[in-house]
Amino acid sequence: MELSLPGKLIKRLSDTGIKSLDQNPLRSLGIIILTVLVLAAVFAPYLAPHDPKQTGIPHQSPSSEHLLGTNDLGQDVFSELIYGTRVSLTIGFLSGIISIVIGVTVGIFAGYFRGWAEELLMGTTDVFLLIPSLPLMIILAAYLNPSMWNIIVVVGLLGWCSTARLVHSRVLQVREMQFIESTRALGYSDIYIIIRHVLVNTKDIIYAKFSLAVASAMLSEASLSFLGLGDPLNISWGEMIHFAFSRGGFANDLWWWYLPPGLMICVTLLAFIMLTMEGRKDSKILELI
């Protein structure tokens, strides 16, 4: 029976798992936090009380005028924190997308086609896994000019390996399932099967892994920025801590400068991790990721 439009919508929502949110408070909390952060990022110009680039009297304590005081250039820390949400989330999401696209592509092709493709792709993945990613990121970020886009590319290109391994394992299971064999027997092309069936059956893992990839990318960006390898023109939370650490924030106990961005990083990472939380303790996804 053909479903009506509202019925279709409810089914789609149910497919995405939103319907089960009431049974999973942690995931609900994660979604709420991230929604707030995304809204803050989108509506930053309306929420921020000051232009974050506007300079003034440096190192002011929190007041009604400057809720979180000012930094070394006299810029409003609270406004910078709100605008920093944009940069941190953009870097996290874009890096996460890059790493997921590469990881899923490698994992699916290696798992589905097997043979020399699997050996080549998973061999390459193993080589990448052997390389300690943070030191390599530091070297690449230092070699390239500090810019937000370079950081996105560097973090994205070095964060796909675990996704590839995971997707590969899942695809190995899926490709042996009877309905895949039936579809193949019916003459559908490999690409059609991969997109319409294999990918669909690995989406739970991909969603969960994407969430962790974004969190991991944000943490990597914060680490690089803290080390002074970030983009000083696009102030992220990590970059705020870097300047607080280099320009007298820590030495003068200016907690309002370095603590809020640190807390924001923690809360956001926690929210992304909450998204991957399953209500059931016997969750297979949890075991896999």
């Binding site: 070394d72 500090p146 002074g228 000083p232 023109l233 300047f243 280099s246 320009r247």
Partner: peptide, 11 residues
């Protein structure tokens, strides 16, 4: 890059 005060001045 190692002259943080110059990075800030350049901003």
């Amino acid at each position: 890059s190692d002259k943080v005060e110059h990075v800030r001045a350049a901003e």
